[in-house]
């Protein structure tokens, strides 16, 4: 649910939260076996997105910008699914998928090669922005656009935080 001022916190999936809530630095390991519907696509993109969560949560300006956002969305990079749980602007959990019958407010699908290009320190034309990649046909957005558009700067800047600082390494799978 897209939170608005004065609304109640999102009561999303208490069972899931209890089982899989992930918090980097808490010392608590992610217990994959605890979730029976967990898929087989755990890749090293998960580590990238965990790092992304750190970057988001350590950026008070971005968290403030997203303070009215509490929802879960699905990021599909190539064949890999990750559910990203936002709580009041914090990227509270990154959950690898697929997870059977799990819903999300919207899905951003980016082809793997396009994601790699997007993550370069200085992307080439066409790969610098989500909507540019959508126009190129290498990315797609599905689902409820409202929370995404209403908080577009927040989500754009979140995605941009996956960008590499140098050209030495590559992100994703």
């Amino acid at each position: 649910m897209h939170r608005r001022p004065g609304s109640r916190p999102c009561p999303c999936r208490p069972i899931w939260r209890k089982t899989l809530n992930w918090s980097k630095g808490s010392g608590r390991a992610f217990d994959r076996a605890a979730w029976p519907y967990y898929g087989d696509s755990m890749g090293h993109l998960t580590a990238t997105l965990e790092e992304l969560a750190d970057r988001v949560n350590e950026n008070p300006g971005l968290v403030r910008r997203g303070r009215f956002v509490s929802l879960e969305w699905l990021l599909q990079i190539g064949a890999e699914d990750h559910y990203l749980t936002i709580e009041n602007g914090r990227l509270a959990a990154v959950t690898p998928g697929p997870v059977l019958m799990r819903s999300s407010r919207f899905t951003i699908h980016i082809e793997e090669d396009a994601w790699q290009r997007f993550c370069r320190p200085v992307p080439r034309p066409g790969y610098y922005d989500l909507f540019g990649m959508c126009k190129l046909g290498v990315a797609r957005i599905d689902g409820d656009f409202h929370p995404l558009i209403a908080n577009l700067r927040y989500f754009r800047e979140m995605l941009a935080m996956a960008r590499l600082e140098t050209d030495e390494a590559t992100h994703g799978s």
């Binding site: 610098y128 922005d129 909507f131 540019g132 656009f145 409202h146 558009i149 209403a150 577009l152 700067r153």
Partner: peptide, 28 residues
């Protein structure tokens, strides 16, 4: 490359969304 109806809605800040939409058109 987008639906302009999103630019003028009562529950989305028009200035914020306009700037966010065009921000990706500025070169890195």
């Amino acid at each position: 490359w987008y639906d302009t109806d999103w630019l003028h809605l009562p529950d989305i800040h028009g200035g914020e969304v306009s700037a966010a939409l065009v921000s990706g058109l500025v070169a890195p």
